[in-house]
Design a protein around this nucleic acid. Structure first.
Length: 483
RNA sequence: GGCCCUAUCGUCUAACGGUUUAGGACGCGGCCCUCUCAAGGCCGAAAUACGGGUUCGAGCCCCGUUAGGGCUACCA
């Protein structure tokens, strides 16, 4: 059926998946799934100079990690392959030849040097830079002769000299550009590879793509693509140009102003659910006040009509909050699994830490953590004895009389049998009573003694987690310091 | 420079031309809770870029200005 929705994500394999690329892929995926359509992955590797080894595998792995599954693509044939452009060279050549035959394209023998020269001249004269169409009307026999002589050449599209090209964009509405500002774009390079412009049109048509959903940086070249569709006599797909993702200074999101690779965020400990949720909301929203969306919910609610027009700053603060929310909502068993994985490659890898213990750390620390690693890094005292005491807190909490008070506390604690949280609490109350001081005057110095710091989960929780023996050991060590 | 796109709190955004004293979220500040830090609850500061028009009525439509961005390659 020709009404089948087919979309594609078509990245260049330049090494990693950019977060902007992730959002483009996600929107394509959401749109396809929402409409029971197909999501195609196509690799645009027509620039040999920019090839990076392993980039395709990496791209697929990252998409897969994010939960964005393609229906067709490299290694997953759906009858429209191959899905890697470098494997489709013959197809592009054939189509370029067709265009020449029909008079919509021509051979150009201009050297890069000549091109550079005219560009310079145009720049100096403050004119817009474009090819001067020197070879546009070369005689057929001259073309033949130079071709036979083996002269290097490219194929250019023959853009009409006048008229205005108008097209509809789902997100932007009507866009109009005059033919005269369009360049006679190269469609086949001298190395025989197609440029993006030819390849994208040929492939989108041959792969029966119904909607081209891509970044706004492609908006200015869309008229060239439309011209090619017209030259071929093909039906146009629908276009939707997504707003750009921006740096805090509002320029196009780029390296050098922070991390742009999805892998960077992954390795920092962001959950895929948080990243997907976050990126989905950069340019789209459900229209109400809900903010937490699973991939499935996004599929259900997504529509291109609700995608905004203006660029969105990639705001890490909000991503952090989302990660925090996801950590808070995650089932304990899952947090435990992730914590163990983290611990296994941490300095504490050698320690025997049972699930019961780790679960209690999770319960104590979860609402204080944004990342799994925070569970450990923000409370190292659950994993090792304090090696030093926070001096600011020492000044505030350890008074001359603290030493003897701590001794009194130690005596109470020593009598406890298998104490739990409440037992520590009542023992401390007892000590405070006998010393005729407020419990807080014991709590703060003791917190410092057992944790080395002044902040963290409830004191009795800490004590119950580290246990009686460890509590006494740490308390004794602190008393020594106090004398 | 030329062409194209865009314009609501610092940021992400909501508001079928009238329900708007412009709503929510992040972040920020305050208060409550409290053994600290969090979490949670409550409260607060914070925006329709500017100028014209259309209309009974404009954040929303039109024009201009300004600002920002993208593109301007034998890169994508």
């Amino acid at each position: 059926m020709s009404t089948q929705i087919r979309v594609r994500f078509a990245p260049s394999p330049t090494g990693y998946l950019h977060v902007g690329g992730l959002r483009t892929a996600l929107y394509n995926y959401l749109f396809a799934k929402h409409h029971d359509g197909k999501f195609v992955l196509r690799i645009e590797d027509t620039d040999q100079a920019r090839r990076v080894e392993g980039a395709v595998e990496n791209l697929i792995a990252t998409l897969d990690w994010a939960g964005i599954r393609f229906d067709e693509g490299p290694g997953r044939d759906g009858g429209y392959g191959p899905y890697v452009q470098s494997e489709r060279l013959e197809i592009y050549r054939k189509h370029a030849d067709d265009l020449i035959k029909k008079g919509f394209a021509y051979r150009c023998f201009c050297t890069p040097e000549r091109l550079e020269e005219i560009r310079q001249r145009q720049n100096a004269a403050k004119l817009s830079t474009s090819y001067d169409r020197h070879c546009r009307d070369l005689a057929a026999d001259e073309v033949e002769r130079r071709l036979n002589a083996g002269e290097r050449n490219v194929i250019r599209m023959k853009v009409p000299l006048e008229g205005v090209l108008t097209f509809e964009d789902i997100i932007r509405g009507t866009v109009a550009i005059a033919h005269e500002v369009l360049d006679d774009q190269v469609i086949i390079k001298s190395d025989g590879f197609p440029t993006y412009h030819l390849a994208v049109v040929v492939d989108d048509h041959l792969m029966a793509i119904s909607h081209v959903i891509r970044g706004e940086e492609w908006l200015p070249s869309t008229p060239k693509h439309i011209l090619l569709y017209k030259f071929f006599g093909w039906e146009l797909p629908k276009f939707a140009h997504l707003p750009l993702l921006l740096n805090p200074d509002k320029s196009k999101l780029s390296k050098r102003q922070g991390d742009v690779a999805v892998e960077d965020y992954r390795s920092k400990g962001y959950f895929k659910e948080a990243i997907v949720n976050f990126v989905a909301f950069l340019g789209w929203n459900p229209g109400d006040e809900r903010e937490i969306f699973s991939l499935e919910e996004l599929v259900r609610e997504f529509s291109l009509e609700r995608v905004g027009k203006s660029g969105a700053v990639f705001n890490v603060e909000k991503l952090n909050w989302l990660n925090f929310e996801y950590l808070k909502r995650m089932p304990e068993a899952e947090v435990l699994r992730l914590l163990k994985a983290y611990l296994a490659q941490s300095p504490y890898a050698g320690q025997l830490l049972d699930d019961h213990f780790l679960l209690s750390v999770i319960r104590a620390m979860r609402e204080r953590a944004t990342f799994i690693k925070d569970l450990v890094e923000k409370s190292p005292y659950f994993f090792e004895r304090p090696t030093q005491y926070d001096q600011d807190v020492v000044k505030k909490r350890w008074k001359p009389e603290t030493g003897s008070q701590m001794k009194r506390l130690l005596e109470e604690f020593a009598q406890l049998q298998n104490p739990g949280k409440e037992h520590f609490e009542s023992a401390l109350h007892k000590a405070a009573e006998s010393l005729q001081i407020k419990t807080s005057e014991l709590i703060h110095p003791l917190r410092l003694a057992v944790s080395g710091v002044g902040a963290g989960p409830g004191l009795y929780d800490i004590l119950a987690i580290i246990g009686k023996e460890e509590t006494i050991h740490r308390l004794s060590a602190a008393i020594e310091k106090l004398q």
